[in-house]
Each structure stands twice: as structure tokens, then as C-alpha cells.
Amino acid sequence: MYEGFLDIFDVFLEQSAEFYVWDNAVYLFRAMMTTLTMTIIGCGLGFIFGMIVVYFRRTPGLMFWPVRMTVIFYVETFRRVPFLVLLFLVMFTVKGFGLDFSLFTIACISIVIISTAFIGEIIRAGLDSVHQTQWDTADAMNFSRLQTLRHVILPQAWKVVLPPAFAFFVMFIKDTALTSQVGVLELTQAGKYYNNLGYSAILSFGTVLVLYFILSYPMTRLGWWMEARLHTRRRDERAEFEVGATAYELRGT
């Protein structure tokens, strides 16, 4: 075992000289950008759709009952499906219906489906953190729903929404590693590629781990900073314990 370790070390040194060259650096950098881009597109769209979903979920009236139920069903379902399973489901559905989407697009669609559900829950918890009396008061002053949202609720809720939403985004940078399984050429796939070329796993996957860390850690710190900056006295306890936010908030710490 001890000798084995020395052998590994020799191989490692030998391969390193070959591995750490400009071309590979460019290749890995591109893969890293793919990882980042699909996370940004997926979570960005997820945020927009999440807002729409919450808006429908909170629209009162009997007429909107089917819409509300659909939205609740959607959110509850897609928060409970593993990302890996969803990826394959989306891929086979796209292919089964003969659609000509790139693997990158398939990955983005999958991310949007999941992030809409999760970020929707985070936004809902944020809106709930603004006390009902603020709605009543605005109501009594003849604010419309949109006016109340725009002038009263959103200016208070965004501080509660942003930290967990950002934590979700940072977490998803790591979860996009699974898209390598449908063949997207992102960071993990790049690691597999080099490993298959015969480079040691310590070298190929080790390098990829470091690159993920470089992507994720500064943003984690940024998230902490944001959380500390935006933490207000008025913040409602409910928002912190509302689930959806919880799992991700914990992952962010």
C-alpha cells in the first residue's frame, strides 16, 4: 500500500506535466462556463416563472381554483423528483416527440422545471413574511393587488427572498454536474473525458473538484454577506422555517 502510494505519486507527477497545458486549460474553462451558463439561465428563468407561479397561487376567487390547484400540484410534485430522473425524462420526451433540441437546451429545460418549483416556494415564503395586515391596510386604501405588490409587499419581501434564492442558485451550480449523464459537455463531463483518456482520477476529477470549488465558494461567501446585510429585525420567523427555503438555506451555510 505504501509503495502503491509512491507509484501513484510518480504517475501523478508524470501526468501533471502533460495535463496542465494551455489547450486543456481552455477546454476546462469552456466546460466551466457551460456549467455556469446553464445554471444562470435555468435559475434566472426559474425565478421569473417562480414569480408567475406564486402570483397565480395567490390569486383569490373561485374562478382561479383550478389554476391554484394546478400550481400547487406542480410545485409539490417537482420538488420531489430527483434532478437526475427529471433530466432523463425531459431528454427522452424531447427525443420521443422528435424535437431537435441540443443537450444544453435539454439541461436548461430540466433546471427551469425544478428551479421554478423551488424558487416559487422561496418567493411564497418571502411574501408570507410580510404581515397580512399590510395587505388589509392597502386594501382599505383601495390599492389594487398589483399596486399593493409593487408599492408595499415586494419592497419588503425581496430582502427575505434574495438570500435563499441565491443560495439555491449556488447549490444548483453543483447539481448541474448530473447533466453530464445526458452528455452535456460541462465540467464533470470534462473530468470524465480526461479520466477516459487515461489520466489519473486524482488528477482529472481532482482538478474538476477544485474548479467547482472556485466557482462555488466565492458565491457562497457572497451569499453569506448578502444574508447578513439584508437580515432585518422585521424578518418573520415563518419565512425561515418555511420549507423549500429550509433545505437550501441549510445547504448554503
Binding site: 447539481d175 448541474t176 473530468g191 482520477a201
Partner: peptide
């Protein structure tokens, strides 16, 4: 907490 579980798994599996 800052690296994907899948990649640490590959690292262990092949490493």
C-alpha cells in the same frame, strides 16, 4: 459543501 456530490463520488470511485 462547495463541490458536487457526483464528482466526489467519481473521485472516490476511480481514485
Amino acid at each position: 459543501t462547495n463541490t458536487p456530490g457526483l464528482v466526489t463520488a467519481f473521485f472516490i470511485f476511480f481514485g
